[in-house]
Nucleic acid binder design. Structure first.
Lengths: 195, 195
DNA sequence: TGTACATCAGTGAACGCGCGTTCACTGATGTAC
DNA sequence: TGTACATCAGTGAACGCGCGTTCACTGATGTAC
């Protein structure tokens, strides 16, 4: 057997992938072990050969979701950059895009889960913290050189909060909130190149 | 019987009060009907004489929590105003106070539940929308005359997002994020009196 | 003022269901010789 | 190359538990006369 990944590793990756979408769509407790296994083409009995507990899967699923988020934000930002504007502007326009209101399962894991994070077991909370740190670092990297990390944290909080409220409001009000938040963030940071 | 509230009304109010704290502490699904009734000094069997369903209680609990939030923000803002500063500054300093990180059960119902709101049944989502609208209106009323409601919505999103991330980060990082967000919001809006 | 009855608020057992977890087993894959 | 055996990944029934909801019943409160 010389394949890059064993059969078990492939199954494992499929389960984590399904779970990373499930927790974003339905929340930490919104989908059960049996459903996740089924969606991954397996039966629930085999679950504990892959994970010590449901929470162990949740941790891996959050990590996967966060890494996907960062990768696709970087990629979309790069694409948008070719159309002019600053890197920060491109990031904000990608994250606060109206399309991000729907398809939560492919969206930001922090926006999907943040108000539930403090209520999770320690291992899960720790991963949540890592996700927030990684997102802040990404925003920081898009801000002009010399910007403070704390500034990136405020921007992150604004984007996450706006996306959540836009989802709750829904419809035109939601889209309008995202648009207004984009304008506010971009307007505010366009002159900050001389930091 | 000439009391202002009947025995049943008193029980009802107690149940709603317990639930309004429970959902903020533990989330929409974090506490069961039986526990809520017990905490209100009753047994679970009587629940359905008060509410058509668990969700019906959740709606009332959210409304209660939101009204309490607004009342106590107004009160605390007023108190802080006597020490100088603008009304907006007083509101931001109240909401983004380090004390708000803990004691979630007495804190902002939106920050406690926002990422779960989109996943609830319609009646609950509708109440969630009302809570967001009410909070935006409160922020709007604290901004200088002539400010746009959309500006208030962005501020609300920023405060809610910052509080959630601060809770997730915890410790010094959380407190620092709140402080930084306070500074950002207040600095940005202190010159906007001439709107 | 007292008795008889009706209504009301709450009790506690029971229901059906879904969930996380365990475990004895099976069929497929890989290894020894 | 072929046979015998060991390991591995996954199966499916079963467990204990907690939850929302229902319901027959009880004790207290209020009303009629």
């Amino acid at each position: 057997m010389l394949k890059g990944q064993s059969r078990k590793e492939l199954s494992h990756a499929r389960i984590v992938d399904v779970a990373s979408k499930a927790i974003r769509r339905a929340g930490y407790r919104g989908i059960g072990v049996a459903d996740i296994m089924k969606e991954a083409g397996l039966t629930h009995g085999g679950f504990y050969a892959h994970f010590d507990s449901r929470d162990a899967l949740v941790v891996e699923a959050m990590a996967k979701a966060g890494q996907e988020n960062i990768a696709s934000l970087l990629q979309a930002t790069e694409r948008r950059l070719t159309q002019g504007g600053t890197r920060f502007q491109a990031l904000v326009e990608t994250y606060l895009n109206a399309a991000h209101i729907e398809r939560m399962e492919d969206g930001c894991v922090i926006a999907a889960l943040s108000s539930e994070m403090t209520r999770q077991e320690d291992v899960v909370r720790e991963e949540a913290r890592r996700r927030v740190d990684a997102m802040v670092a990404l925003v920081h990297s898009a801000l002009p050189d010399g910007s403070e990390e704390s500034e990136a944290a405020v921007v992150t909080a604004t984007m996450v909060g706006a996306l959540q409220l836009a989802r709750t409001l829904g419809g035109k009000a939601g889209i309008a909130l995202l648009a207004q938040t984009r304008r506010a963030l971009i307007g505010r940071h366009q002159h900050s190149t001389h930091h």
